[in-house]
Amino acid sequence: MNEFGGVVRVRGLFKEHGQGQGLVRAVDGVDLEVPAGQMLAVMGPSGCGKSTLLHLLGGLERPSDGQVWLAGQRIDTVNERGLARLRRRSVGFVFQAFHLIEELSAAENVELPVLLAGRSARAARRRAAFLLERFGLADRTRHLPWQLSGGQRQRVAIARAMANEPLVLLADEPTGNLDTAATLDVLRIFADLRAAGQTLVVVTHDERVAATADRLVTMRDGMFVDDTQLAGRTGRLDGLIGLED
């Protein structure tokens, strides 16, 4: 943990793609700090740089300039091997298209990152069984991805992302392919994880997903243009409906 206490912290972050006339500043001078246990949502139009930002936070891409810390450790200066290790153990990724391994069962998909982190097969099986049960998939552990609904596949993907108890869970449009009911299932899981102290960063187009976060930043052209605290005003639901006289 660094002196500022943020699990995720970036300073003066830039990411450029292309060169010359084709140069695009996908991330254009971003400062951000996400405290432990916070759910941060990032919204913005397509191409605003929100996915690139997520990749920089999780070490999937390296910044053109600026610094990235994860739990107090600089990750932008870490070598490839260190970065790969960090992605395996300290960061959990969830994608819109699930990206499960189609040849492996739900349980095996969740076990894989535990095994890759060097733990025993027994530990991997236990962790997978625990997470799949927690996410309501106890009766789906032996199913292959194609035998599952989209919502179930995404829950398996979240279980996989949580396999090594990551410092931060990074989700890129996690409900983009899901219907309303499956979206609510995913949001219930996120709420449950946050209640257990998990730090989450969620990139989304869906206002209903973003609104459940503690804090929402809006990006445009690689920059933050709005930053709103959403949590804190609770229990006052009467303003939501107008039942007169």
Binding site: A211, T212, A231, L237, L240
Partner: peptide
């Protein structure tokens, strides 16, 4: 206005969950 509606939406969504 957007910030206000997002807060309301958050309240509705949390109650719904």
């Amino acid at each position: 206005q957007r910030r206000e509606l997002l807060r309301r939406l958050g309240e509705a969504q949390r109650a719904l969950l």
